[in-house]
């Protein structure tokens, strides 16, 4: 099911949660709504679900205007942040609930068969008789997903699906959700504030800030070509270096970086630790190492430049560098934006 948001607006009391958001989601796509808290991502998801109604704009499901269709009839599967499993029902009863209350009457055997099939899909065979309090967080998450899928939703919506889980369970579930999505091909939107999760899981990432879409694109596009300093910062550690652009080249001292699309004049170069290099002799921005942090996959150098800026630089594990060494920071790549 193709979903289309047109100039959607939502205000709570005086807080403008969503301001004029337009978004197209292709059928079968897996889209992440990514943003800091208060960016309006959950509100957008709840409006697509019908749990909130938009103050302005339209939401289309395929060719149908779904803006005013109540959640009950909208045909979405919603997975809540804290799962919202019915505590007084077993896992199997939770999954069967949507089929039992449906306007479409189903035979008991049909429901039982579908529950068994869903339990297999979410790899919880044999746990159907447990109550939600008797299973782990990751298992609850999968029950919530199975329950949402049981009603054959046109769209699957997940609110911070892995927020309450620990890191290992989170990574496994992420890969697993990707597999399920591949298997079922259902249009899926999920909300997260964790950029790693969004980049790991989604076909397309929609980055939001203060109720507006800041940038959308594939993980590759938003990572390699961030269109603003906000996106650059939000996707990971980033440092801002003041520079001067002349004839398509940004310069800081004798360090130069191509900036073909940036207008002449003052500019800012945004760099990540992995975009920087370190050399004990040669050229670059002169700096002093304050600390070296060793990690399994490399070393991170913390350095202060002579211009008074603190930077972090990722270097290969074999790089010979120690605290209080003097040397030079090189910029291998970076994003150049005109100075604000």
């Amino acid at each position: 099911m193709k979903i289309r948001l047109e100039n959607v607006v939502k205000t709570f009391e005086t807080f403008r949660a969503v301001r004029d958001v337009s978004l197209d989601i292709e059928s079968g796509e897996l889209v992440a709504l990514l943003g800091p808290s208060g960016s309006g991502k959950t509100t957008i998801l709840r409006m697509v679900a019908g749990l909130e109604f938009a103050d302005g704009g339209h939401i289309h499901f395929g060719d149908q205007d779904a803006t005013d269709i109540p959640v009950r009839d909208r045909g979405v599967g919603f997975v809540f942040q804290h799962y919202a499993l019915f505590p007084h029902m077993t896992v199997a009863q939770n999954i069967a609930f949507g089929m039992k209350v449906s306007k479409v009457r189903r035979a008991r055997q049909e429901i039982d068969a579908r529950v068994a099939e869903l339990l297999r899909l979410v790899r919880l065979e044999g746990l159907g008789d447990r109550f939600p309090t008797q299973i782990s967080g990751g298992q609850r998450q999968r029950v919530a997903l199975a329950r949402a899928l049981a009603v054959d939703p046109k769209v699957l919506l997940l609110d911070e699906p892995f927020g309450a889980l620990d890191a290992n369970v989170r990574r496994d579930l992420r890969r697993w959700l990707r597999e399920i999505h591949g298997e079922l091909g259902i249009t899926t939107i999920f909300v997260t504030h964790d950029q790693e999760e969004a980049l790991d899981l989604a076909d397309r990432v929609v980055i939001l800030n203060e109720g507006r879409i800041v940038q959308q694109g594939t993980p590759e596009e938003v990572c390699r070509r961030p269109n603003s300093s906000f996106v650059m910062h939000f996707l990971g550690d980033a440092y801002r270096l003041p520079a001067q652009v002349e004839a398509g080249i940004a310069r800081i001292g004798d360090v130069a970086l191509d900036a073909p699309s940036c207008p002449e004049g003052p500019a800012e170069i945004y760099v990540r630790p992995a975009d920087l290099g370190w050399t004990n002799s040669g050229s670059g921005m002169p700096a002093v190492v304050t600390r070296v942090i060793d990690r399994p996959d490399g070393r991170r150098v913390l350095a202060d430049t002579d211009a008074g800026q603190s930077l972090e630089i990722d270097v290969p594990p074999e790089t010979p560098v120690r605290a209080s060494d003097r040397g030079f920071v090189q910029i291998n790549r970076g994003s150049v934006f005109p100075a604000a």
């Binding site: 749990l51 499993l85 949402a148 009603v151």
Partner: peptide, 8 residues
């Protein structure tokens, strides 16, 4: 909300 979204 969960129950309603499931069609109840």
């Amino acid at each position: 909300e969960a129950a309603t979204s499931l069609g109840a």
